[in-house]
Design a protein around this nucleic acid. Structure first.
Lengths: 201, 201
DNA sequence: ACCTGAACACCGTTCAAGT
DNA sequence: ACCTGAACACCGTTCAAGT
């Protein structure tokens, strides 16, 4: 046995991540397992540990790829939005569309929890920071007289708010008000927050 | 073996739920298992299935107890708040305090996902609705000229927003801005949203 | 060096067997 | 009726053994 060498390490990593993404898309993060991944790609359990330190690391890398995809959607959404208000709205809408269309892998980012004491790698954090900067830049253009501190706080509040709308919106468990779409609730949050933010400028 | 009859069905249910709550408090929802629960209460695996249909049902009932505890904190917070604006702020603050002090079992409400196709029992939904009514009532007093529809939408936007702040705030994975406390971000969301909401009255 | 597959310590759930 | 504990089908991870 052994020494098949059909794939390089990098190829193995790639097909494993792709298989993981398909499994998550079909069955959610809970439906992901090392044994399912290797059975999809025609290897045995041990091989996975040649490329990933653990299942947690595989999930972390999968989530980084999701963050990349999300960033590109957000970046594409702000392009050609000369009005700062429209840019913020476009960012929120792009986030919601991503969450709606890629629900399982978007959810996986938040469902996955590292074992006690472990922290996320820097590459992960910087992808989050990069995405967050888009919101901050749009807000800075929207309220140019505000201090960087005010902008940072507002960006965090708005981003968290939109995220909360998405999370609770897809959780039928918490389906509170019938007939209210995620977009409608997000618009309410955005409109009133921005009105209040600019009003106290 | 068998027929110990040390506890009634109801007692067994109670000590199992209590053990589950302790396990979750100590190790999070991921650290909860049927085998750990029964080992805590001195029974064997099979016994658990006399009282709960499945582990999912046990978790659901545990989460309902958490919702009860949360509701009481929220209800206590609005009492003696004659000013409607203060009532809304008190609700948000009570929610944050609960999330901060009871983090694992508060998180468990959102981490737990039912198997595909299953829906939450009515008792669960009505506990959520009851909690949500508190926000709606406070908002109705705050903006008495608004239609019930507007109030419902605003309540949902605000509640989702505060929840998003809590969720992202405790997820160090997404720790975006150093030094910003959950309270600070929540205040920003609340202040500006309410200002915008009342401003367009 | 690469890969296997048995082994270990877990897991949820079921159910024949015992009292 | 109540409860056990073996059994089944899973799980993540390790590692001696094979090529």
């Amino acid at each position: 046995m052994g020494r098949r060498n059909e794939h390089t390490r990098e190829e193995l990593r790639e097909i494993a991540l792709r298989a993981a993404e398909e499994l998550v898309a079909a069955q959610g993060l809970a439906g992901l397992s090392t044994r399912k991944v290797v059975s999809c790609i025609g290897y045995t359990v041990g091989s996975l540990y040649m490329v990933f330190r653990s299942l947690d690391e595989l999930i972390l890398q999968m989530n980084e790829r999701t963050l990349d995809a999300l960033y590109e959607r957000l970046a594409a959404a702000v392009v050609d939005q000369p009005q700062p208000g429209a840019a913020i709205r476009a960012l929120a809408r792009a986030y919601i569309v991503f969450a709606l269309t890629e629900t399982p892998r978007w959810l996986a980012i938040y469902q996955h929890r590292l074992p006690e004491g472990q922290t996320v790698p820097d590459s992960f954090s910087s992808k989050v920071a990069r995405m967050f900067d888009l919101v901050q830049q749009a807000l800075a253009l929207f309220a140019p007289r505000r201090s960087p501190d005010d902008i940072a706080l507002a960006a965090r509040a708005l981003w968290s708010g939109i995220h909360g709308v998405c999370i609770l919106g897809f959780d039928q468990k918490l389906e509170l008000v019938g007939g209210r779409s995620v977009e409608q609730v997000a618009d309410s949050l955005l409109d009133h927050y921005l009105a209040g933010f600019i009003g106290t400028d």
